[in-house]
Simulated scan of single mutants.
Amino acid sequence: MALFILRRLLQSLFVLLAVSVVVFCAVYAVGDPIELLVSPEASPADRQAMIIRLGLDLPLWQQYTHFLWNALHGDLGNSFVQGVPALDMILQRMPATFELVAVAIAMTCLFGIPLGLVAGLYRDTPLGRTIMGTSVLGFSLPNFWQGMMLILMFAVWLGWLPASGRGDTVSVFGVPFSFLTRDGWAHMIMPAINLALANVALVLRMTASGVAEAQSQEYVKFARAKGVRPGRIVSRHILSNILIPVVTVIGMEMGHLIAYSTITETVFAWPGMGKLLIDSVYQLDRPVVVAYVMFVTLLFVVINLIVDILYAVLDPRVRLLAPAN
Rank of each mutant, 00 (worst) to 15 (best):
A291L: 07
G116V: 05
E253G: 08
F300D: 04
T130L: 15
L202P: 10
E35F: 12
L54H: 04
G174Y: 03
Y282F: 14
L150M: 12
P176T: 11
S39I: 05
G184C: 07
M107W: 09
Q82Y: 14
V27Q: 01
I238G: 10
E265H: 10
M273A: 13
S280P: 05
P245S: 13
M94V: 10
F179I: 15
H256R: 15
T97S: 12
N199P: 02
G77Q: 01
L13N: 07
I52G: 05
I34E: 01
Q215F: 02
L110N: 00
Q92L: 12
L6V: 14
M294P: 09
V22C: 01
F139I: 02
G147N: 04
Q82T: 11
P162R: 06
R182T: 14
L141C: 07
Q63R: 15
G147F: 07
D32T: 00
M50T: 11
T207C: 09
F154N: 08
A212G: 09
S39N: 13
S164P: 03
L152A: 13
R232V: 13
L121P: 06
I131S: 07
L9W: 03
S135L: 03
L298A: 15
T169S: 14
G74T: 06
P114S: 11
F144W: 13
T264W: 07
L305T: 14
G165T: 06
A49T: 11
G55V: 04
L110M: 10
A201I: 11
G231Q: 07
P44K: 03
L284F: 12
D46F: 03
